[in-house]
Write a protein that binds this DNA or RNA. Structure first.
Lengths: 194, 194
DNA sequence: GGTTTTCGCCTACATGCTGTAGGGTGGGTT
DNA sequence: AACCCACCCTACAGCATGTAGGCGAAAACC
């Protein structure tokens, strides 16, 4: 009758549920209900809950890596940075559950995946337009990721809800500030003035 | 015999458990076991699991606000910024469960608490040593929080584990970079080159 | 001093989720 | 036609949340 289930289908459905109800609401029972199947049936496709979550993380990682790749292709400098940041924010807003699935310690397999490797590479690519010395790239990449992810996290937890103006304005300032920072990357003991 | 339980004791014990085993492992059953009591007994002190978590968040918020207050008192500029950032990082490292309790959407009561209000005020105080115009303070505070919290989040989820050098080095660069950024806060349409 | 109230923890239970064991059925193969 | 196996099923054990109601001991009251 119905086409048989597969790991991919289960994980995709779990991701959809996460986006609708929040990552923490993703339960094997709930996914089974959505798929019109009994809960134990899912264990043939997914080892356990941890594996399901890892699958969602891997899925999100792959999607995001593709989006980032498309966004920064052919751009550089502030242009690339804007596109890079915009993709993250859009993803966090449009797929909040998937985005949440990235904010956790994932299994080894996920960490070593191509998508995960790509993500760091892409962050490095954004830096190409900036005068950050090669041996400082790690730090710049970490700073970039920290600020972008941190902003999205605070926004999601409602940290900005009780002060004006809307987060969008701060987001723009933040991206511009990061651009300025990267263009004048400080030397070890302070800043150099040009 | 034993002194009777109280909400404060239950919450404190839950916080201790969170630090030992992770925030997501905090369960009313587990806390009851630690306290040598049956699980339903806790419901006289804590309305439900959500209330317990909110209590932990409020506790952490209060502790952190006090630590920050002590750290930035009498300091300014980079000195204050360093102390401010250091308190956050130390707290995240020494009380990981409590820190995790801050990375969630808390109930209204917690959000409106004095401690929560203090935290924004304190972030603003750090900016006093920098030439950030008053109407830009919100953005700077948000940026500061984003970067600091984001770094700690990425560090905790193991994002930095598979690249060298150790996060400590990046942390230092990050704080220095934030200092540089605040000292040369970019104007709205770009940066001014001094 | 004895009675009564109250407080704090208890047992019992309903409900929901995870994960295991093992059964049955239908579609494809030979 | 008989077989097999992929796929989903039922049954169950274990642990979590949260409700209802009981019991005992200490405090309060006459």
């Amino acid at each position: 009758m119905r086409p048989p289930l597969s790991a991919a289908i289960v994980i995709a459905d779990a991701a959809a549920l996460a986006d609708e109800a929040g990552f923490e609401k993703v339960t094997l029972s709930a996914v089974a209900r959505r798929l019109g199947v009994q809960a134990p049936s899912l264990y043939s496709h997914v080892r356990d809950l941890k594996a399901l979550r890892d699958g969602m993380t891997a899925l999100a990682l792959g999607e995001l890596a593709d989006l980032v790749a498309a966004a920064i292709a052919g751009r550089s400098g502030l242009d690339a940075l804007r596109a890079y940041a915009a993709v993250y924010r859009a993803y966090a807003q449009e797929s909040p559950g998937r985005w949440q699935s990235l904010q956790r310690r994932a299994g080894e397999a996920v960490v070593r995946s191509d998508a995960a490797r790509n993500m760091s590479t892409q962050a490095g690519a954004v830096l190409r337009g900036y005068p950050v010395p090669q041996d400082e790239h790690v730090h710049a990449v970490r700073l970039l990721g920290s600020t972008i992810n941190g902003f999205l996290g605070l926004e999601r937890t409602g940290n900005f809800d009780h002060s004006s103006p809307a987060p969008d304005v701060s987001w723009d300032r933040t991206v511009v500030a990061l651009d300025a920072l990267l263009r004048a990357w400080p030397a070890h003991s302070g800043t150099d003035s040009s």
